[in-house]
Simulated scan of single mutants.
Amino acid sequence: MTKAHHNLIQACLAHYQVLHASEPSTIGPVVTSYFAMMKRVYRIEGWAGLYKGFMPTFLSTLFVTGFILLFMDTPSPSHGRYHAPNTSLLGTLFYTIIMMLIALPTSIITYRSITTPFKLSYFNAAKSLRAILTPTERRKPWILYLTPGLLVAEVLHIIIVVVGLGPIRRLLLPKPELGSFPDYSITKLGIYIVVVVLTTAILSPLEVMSIRLAIQRNHASAEYNSVSQEYEGDAEENVEFSGNEEDVIALRSESDPYLGFIDCAKRMVNEEGLSSLYRAWWITFLGGLGSVTSY
């Protein structure tokens, strides 16, 4: 499972990851299962709702793949945030952070596209962007990089994977010879699986928080703080999905956003419990297991 596929599944889960605040009566049904949420999205939004993130994912994949083919010196490039050319540890870390910075705006757009209650056009990009980006973000696209806490969560995730998990995998599970079946030691493979379990305990909260922080839209008006959404002139012409008078998605109150990485972690634990940081942990775990054969 590549990092891109992993993040896309995580974004789908954002339908129930984004908010279970301290006042449950204000947010509609609470869904805590991946397949239950998939069923609910299909019931309310149909197939179009399940594919709301297709276009930004498709375009970002083309862009990143093209960038690697044109500018990266690697004989067989593949799409994935943490796949880097063979180089030193610092070189790999630098490469991965650069790729994350390139992909970050499209990741934000993908997450917001998936969780928005509005029907987005596949081919009218301008109208779709007006629905998911604030006027401030459209005027100053670089402000997406200043979303409170988001870069911290992303960089920490990269450091743990590249500096921690990567070298341990290469130490315990050497790269097999070309054309041969990997002959791994059962003991070393077992140790690596334990390492994957431990890193999942750290990576899963980072991924959940990354999605929550990415969905918060930036606004620079004086009457709101820096992550509140704008009301006037924002997504006025967009049509919402309708399904039995149910809310399509419950986002965090715009008047009470997360103010940063630490604030997000503390308030999620205080408002929703520690388990909120481990929603869909099994996806992170399966991604770690998939790294056994990824070289």
Rank of each mutant, 00 (worst) to 15 (best):
L8D: 05
A14L: 11
A14K: 11
A14D: 09
Q17D: 10
H20I: 10
P24E: 05
T26Q: 11
V30N: 10
V31Q: 03
A36H: 09
M37L: 04
K39P: 00
R40D: 04
R40E: 07
V41Q: 04
R43L: 07
R43A: 14
R43T: 10
K52Q: 14
F58S: 02
L59D: 05
L62T: 06
L62H: 07
F63V: 15
V64P: 04
T65S: 15
I68V: 12
L69Y: 12
L69I: 07
M72H: 05
P75K: 08
S76F: 12
P77N: 04
P77A: 13
S78F: 12
H79R: 11
L89D: 01
G91W: 02
T96Q: 04
A103G: 10
P105V: 12
S107T: 15
S107R: 15
Y111S: 13
R112Y: 04
R112I: 03
I114S: 00
T116E: 01
K119G: 01
L120H: 03
L120K: 01
N124R: 10
N124L: 02
A126T: 11
K127A: 15
K127W: 08
L129Q: 03
I132P: 00
T136N: 10
K140T: 13
K140S: 06
P141D: 06
L144P: 03
T147W: 04
L151W: 01
L151C: 06
V155S: 06
L156I: 10
I159Y: 02
V161L: 15
G164A: 04
G164F: 05
G166D: 07
P167W: 00
P167N: 05
L173S: 04
P174I: 06
P176M: 01
P176H: 03
L178K: 14
F181A: 12
P182E: 05
Y184P: 03
S185W: 07
S185H: 07
T187Y: 13
I191A: 14
Y192M: 13
I193F: 10
L198Y: 04
T199L: 09
I202N: 00
I202T: 11
S204D: 12
L206P: 02
M209P: 04
I211E: 06
R212E: 10
A214K: 08
I215N: 08
R217W: 02
R217C: 08
S221D: 14
S226C: 07
V227C: 06
V227Q: 11
V227N: 11
V227G: 02
A235C: 04
E236T: 13
E236V: 13
S242E: 13
N244R: 08
L251C: 01
R252T: 03
G260K: 08
I262D: 10
D263Q: 07
C264N: 11
N270P: 00
E271W: 07
E272G: 15
L274P: 03
S276I: 05
W282Q: 10
W282V: 09
I283F: 15
T284M: 08
F285R: 02
L286F: 15
L286I: 13
G287F: 15
G288I: 08
S291Q: 13
Y295T: 10
